[in-house]
Design a protein around this nucleic acid. Sequence first.
DNA 1: CAGTGGTCTAGACCACTGC
DNA 2: CAGTGGTCTAGACCACTGT
Lengths: 262, 262
Amino acid sequence: MPPISSGVLGALDPTSDRAVFRQIADQLREAIDKGRFKEGDKLPSESELVEHYGVSRMTVRNSLSLLQTEGLVVSEHGRGVYVRPRPPVRRLASDRFARRHREQGKSAFIVEADAAGSRPEVDSLEVREERPTQDIAARLGSPRRVLARRRRYLLDNRPVEFAVSYLPLDIARGTPIAEPNPGPGGIYARLEELGHRLDHFDEEIRARMPSPDEIKTLRLAAGVPVIHLIRTAHDTTGRAVEVCDTVMAADAYVLAYQLPAT
Amino acid sequence: MPPISSGVLGALDPTSDRAVFRQIADQLREAIDKGRFKEGDKLPSESELVEHYGVSRMTVRNSLSLLQTEGLVVSEHGRGVYVRPRPPVRRLASDRFARRHREQGKSAFIVEADAAGSRPEVDSLEVREERPTQDIAARLGSPRRVLARRRRYLLDNRPVEFAVSYLPLDIARGTPIAEPNPGPGGIYARLEELGHRLDHFDEEIRARMPSPDEIKTLRLAAGVPVIHLIRTAHDTTGRAVEVCDTVMAADAYVLAYQLPAT
DNA sequence: CAGTGGTCTAGACCACTGC
DNA sequence: CAGTGGTCTAGACCACTGT
């Protein structure tokens, strides 16, 4: 029997057509938007809301679940429901694959995270040969088998991105690209050393809700979509030499591009 | 008392730790993934699922609501729950603002939709002067007031995008840009005629769940995120001459970009 | 241990759809 | 009209968190 919750919440309008659980969600949403509950703040508990509004617990839970699917709050079992904290965002600039960024030793991800004051990490490294999916094969000019490089990126212990690079075997087999650590400048530097001078990258961007698998590997909260990015690297002969399939936690990224006006 | 639902669904595992409503959602998800329920197909009704699994209705509804937040199904009041149809996708190419595309009469949106065989439409046109938000002002070099052009784009009667363009008043006031229909080639063509030769565009891309407002104006189904795109147009003097703030239904778009390797 | 959210039941009444 | 999903109640037991 905790006391009535704080005075930021109003009363229900019984004459309204709007469902009770939506009205409750509206009031909580407004309180969050106006900063009366701030990032990381704990919302009133379910029992407090039940008491405050005089409704059943399922109705309150319905409201909270709505806010969760909107990405506004996260619930933590045994602790409470909290306003979802906005994690630091990683900005991907349009010049991020410029050749000059490949000259140095460390990978772009590490360099950039260090500069931003976050602790970067790469895990789940896996390199193997496999049969490409139809889509990947089409993008790479239909090789029968490809080298696949899988890895997960983390910032301050939080997974933010999962990426798989595919390369035709005739390019990658027996080269440093097939090693877990391809060396300074990453696989793009190695590709150029092997004579595949890079010309440009094509990127395709989609956004959607994550699959249960993606929720697990990226430890995504409810209401967080993913950005799905497919990049194809082309060399100066026009050949597609790599396809990188990336799934990113959407709340951790801003992508930036520059378009020519001509 | 309808008959037991079709044979595509299995039984529950009472020894499993996994919650019953998750097991039911898993089976439905798998059936959808494997194509046993196809796009637009009707799922078994709630009462059929209640009967099939021997659980209460709330448990079944919990499963279905899970699938809805994942974007896999949509429910229609009084009709049933359906596998969410994948609408035709609009592809935004990286050369979409090239000058040559501005020479013709119609707007890029109309031309492109016609070519793709869809019926394009633009509505909710509104042009007015207003005070910019802090963010917009910062991007435009802190003008005190701006011209705002709002419009909504539809394909085959479905809203897919809502966009607002902001321009400094000293550029736009009293020009065709301040008219509801700015004429052939759109406002970018007018800007160039007014002496603001365009140099490049910067685009910032985010993805997130929609606000209740956005759900309404874009008529979004549950489980569909939005792509938020902010484009800044720069003229050859380096001045930001327009900011366009766009919210797109994520299931209706693929964005394509080209990055230089140099 | 008390308090929190997670799961589940067994009802009820309503609003919408289609025949 | 029967069948569908939408809302709501009033309980119950469980699992997790903190002290």
